[in-house]
Design a protein around this nucleic acid. Structure first.
Lengths: 336, 336
DNA sequence: CTGAAAGCGCTTACAG
DNA sequence: CTGAAAGCGCTTACAG
């Protein structure tokens, strides 16, 4: 690896002092046009790029944002595009992403603490939140900047720190409204029964449930025993074998919806005709199933830009709820 | 964010010089037992952690490994767990992961160049390789340390730099052997026809093809027009409607395999009975479909540890091909 | 507008 | 074994 060009060499090449080069870089307004041009020429001639480490030490800013990679097999369909978009958004502000792993729950706090103590990152982006997530209160209490994708659903009081989330309840309520407008009055829900059920899963279910109640519809739900197509197929079977089989099924995720679709096909029921099905996340699965799966698209670009904005300055309000967008495909042609 | 504890404060607290504290941290053997204990006590009392930035500047090591996040909707099923495992492996060596985005192909090189010029990372892990990947030769020619997950399939000569890959050809050949042993003699292949087909996709197909040839079996293949269940379903339909319908189908990915399974169900053909189906990656989809999908598991832990090993020291051989492990489930009960 | 000085918080030879 | 010195490559007030 060749020796890097330093500021000192640029200064020598341009015939100015090092500070002047630094000024050209960081405060160009305070340096005369002619010398600025001269220095710029030297910078380009030598291909100079400031050493980030040295700059970080001087400015006391790591220039790095920390993000913890969660273990989440099923969720990766959405979280992977999210990470990509988040990284681009952070890069747009001249910083970079440091990703790390940590144990779940309280024990994971130690990793966040280390990163801060070592001054390895300036702030965190949090995701994969759980109810009363311990990270939020810990970080907030130490004054560590962060922004959360996802709520912590506090029992009482305000959620600590800024957050951005997608209104899962609102999106599911909207699905129910559209399905109802299309003539359905047996609209069931297929959700998770494990941990996933707690935060976002519960939220999505609540939207479905409240809207069913408002419209006076029967509220039938069944649960996959894990985040799997197989579990969802069983849940769907249970609903379809009941005394009031649904004509539409709102699933809490695309993976679950694909399982539901499989069960329908097995019974020679046509998705989008005999029984309508919707998913959530608009992942690769949604566009991948035959005819396509109607799903709720999370506005990735809006989410990440709102997160980055909240990292850099206090925003009002501290929390923002974005609308999911219904992408209508053949499994449930619910166009307005 | 509270003021961090510095080495200077630890030294004062322990009543020694700063260099001695540094020695306790970096060369404990050259400091007397008694002072070491004293310093350790001070470190713990103050909760001291060395500032990574300052250390990096002094040692001229960023302590960060760069990894480019590719855009790869369908592949994320495997790449997400891979990134998690890779991050853990890197952390095991006391360094951390910096992830970044870059344009595809030649244009992306500039991003790698910047990261090196800025001394933001010490080395790179490459993945999502393409034939004659420009990154490998560029990095190798500048002496930038890197390790590649995936081959570049050079037309001629050796692949630049160290690499680790999974033997897709070998795994698919093994699948064919096992299917043949189980009585199948119409074993078709469903692959991609786009970019994915070039590297790993082609490799997997070659394994299937060579083994079919060796066993004197018919070689029928069909291709999904994108990495989708839907495309795979069409490909499977084409095969099943042919004059010599296959009794087993080897798919190049789990997503494709799920599409094949869907097409079978639609025709009332039972996967694992009427037609056997195998996938690749052992992703969440494989365990998620009803009865489970027989798939090839990539040895994530071995891959990442081999990569990290090659980052730190030249290994012999520079490239290593790991075996994929066949995970047998109901879609193709090919147990030995 | 420009440059000499001090400092960011460490590590690394090198004296003592 | 321990400590004074120099240095990593920048930035940031502050003189001139």
């Amino acid at each position: 690896m060749r020796q890097a060009v330093t500021l000192r060499q640029v200064a020598a090449h341009a015939g100015v002092s090092r500070q002047t080069v630094s000024n050209v870089l960081n405060a160009p307004h305070r340096v005369e046009e002619i010398t600025r041009v001269k220095v710029q020429a030297a910078i380009e001639a030598l291909g100079y790029q400031p050493n980030r480490t040295a700059r970080s030490l001087a400015t006391r800013q790591a220039g790095l944002i920390g993000y913890c990679l969660a273990r989440r097999p099923g969720r990766s369909l959405f979280m992977d595009p999210f990470l990509h978009a988040l990284t681009e958004a952070i890069e747009g502000t001249g910083r970079r992403m440091l990703v790390f792993t940590a144990p779940d729950g309280e024990q994971g706090i130690a990793t966040y603490a280390d990163l801060i103590a070592q001054r390895a990152v300036d702030a965190f982006i949090l995701s994969d939140t759980v109810p009363d997530d311990p990270r939020h209160s810990w970080l907030a209490s130490r004054g560590v900047p962060f922004a959360s994708f996802g709520r912590t659903w506090p029992e009482q009081g305000e959620q600590p720190g800024p957050w951005v989330d997608v209104d899962g309840a609102g999106a599911c309520a909207e699905l129910v409204r559209r399905l109802h407008s299309a003539g359905h009055d047996q609209i069931a829900f297929v959700g998770w029964c494990d941990l996933l059920a707690m935060g976002a899963g519960k939220d999505r279910q609540r939207g479905w449930q409240d809207e069913c109640a408002r419209l006076g519809l029967l509220e039938q739900a069944a649960y996959a025993d894990s985040d799997s197509m197989d579990g969802a197929a069983s849940a769907a079977a249970q609903l379809l074998d009941g005394s009031t089989p649904p004509t539409a099924i709102v699933a809490a995720s695309d993976l679950l919806a694909v399982g539901v679709v499989g069960e329908l096909r097995r019974r020679k029921l046509r998705p989008g005709h005999d029984v309508w099905v919707t998913g959530f996340d608009d992942s690769v699965l949604a566009s991948s199933v035959e005819g396509g799966l109607t799903s709720v698209s999370q506005p990735t670009a809006e989410i990440t830009s709102a997160l980055v904005k909240r990292l850099d300055a206090e925003q009002d309000p501290a929390g923002v709820l974005l609308a999911g967008q219904i992408v209508s495909r053949c499994s449930a042609p619910v166009d307005l």
